[in-house]
């Protein structure tokens, strides 16, 4: 008994830093944020507890639409990233060996050696009306006048996909690397063609990587701020932008906190629905 107790204590001590960290940096601010979010400002300096800040989200189509748009764009980003990253990852994991492999991997990592801001400005320099792409096209005579590539949804997607790539490639490469070549060969040997082997053997095996990559990319895109705001310009309409605006430019922390919670809840719901649809479980993905 004594041993049991002391080992329990030891475990507790071992876990203490983690628990304190979790408590202080995750739980506490959230609790605080929650109380903030259920505070309704009825007049200057007068507050009351209510769900008005949450209702505001549902009653004002503008917020609701902004969220829906953000979610749809993030799902699109996730899908596009997956479509691009899968062949790349397959190539890195299965076709390449040694130095070439490391090289390509680093290539995927490269964008992350500069900050997100610099990266996004890079895109702006390339894509703006007087930017490199537009001038090159004019110089080549493909187009007559300058074209603005910025400030469209497509641009936002490009930027998001670009900055999400690594988070998809890494889990995919690691699951694909763990797929023994003999499974693929057996898939062919037993009569499968490229497509069926991909569908029956490679994808089922890579599923945990696909799911975790998708979750990460989706959450990152949903929570991204700089890329959609800078590349999307006047029509960016990103939900985090709303939260930021509520906190910083409107001093409406109550509304901002409510939006923050809604984002957390709704994005978790979407992830949950995604897992259900793909018949995956989170524990399988992480395990």
């Amino acid at each position: 008994m004594k041993l049991g107790n002391s080992s329990k204590l030891g475990l507790l001590l071992l876990m203490a830093p983690l628990l304190i960290w979790l408590f202080a940096l995750i739980l506490l601010p959230h609790v605080d944020m929650f109380f903030l979010s259920i505070r309704e400002k009825v007049a200057p300096r007068v507050y009351q507890t209510s769900m008005a800040n949450y209702m505001e989200f549902f009653n004002e189509p503008l917020y609701w639409n902004t969220f829906a748009r953000t979610a749809v764009m993030s799902i699109l980003t996730t899908a596009i990233t997956l479509l691009i990253a899968f062949p790349i990852s397959y190539y890195i994991a299965k076709m390449l060996k040694g130095r070439m492999k490391a090289f390509l991997f680093v290539l995927c990592l490269l964008p992350f050696w500069v900050s997100e801001l610099v990266r996004t400005f890079g895109w702006m320099i390339l894509l703006r009306e007087t930017g490199i792409v537009s001038s090159t096209l004019q110089w080549m005579g493909v187009v007559d006048g300058p074209i603005e590539f910025l400030y469209t949804d497509a641009t936002i997607l490009v930027g998001l996909v670009y900055s999400s790539m690594l988070f998809m490639v890494v889990p995919l490469v690691s699951t694909l690397e763990s797929l023994d070549d003999s499974y693929i060969e057996a898939g062919y040997d037993l009569g499968g063609n490229g497509f069926t082997v991909l569908r029956e053997v490679v994808i089922p095996h890579a599923m945990p990587g696909i799911v975790s990559g998708c979750i990460v990319v989706f959450m990152l895109s949903l929570g991204n701020y700089l890329t959609p705001v800078l590349l999307g310009g006047k029509d960016s309409l990103w939900f985090t932008e709303q939260i930021y605006a509520q906190f910083i430019t409107r001093f409406n922390w109550e509304q901002g906190a409510a939006f923050g919670f809604l984002l957390l809840i709704l994005s978790s719901l979407i992830v949950w629905a995604g897992l259900k649809l793909s018949r995956q479980t989170l524990s399988e993905t992480m395990g």
Partner: peptide, 11 residues
């Protein structure tokens, strides 16, 4: 998302 906002505020 929320984290970013939190980061901002705690920051």
């Amino acid at each position: 998302m929320l984290k970013q906002k939190l980061k901002m505020v705690t920051g």
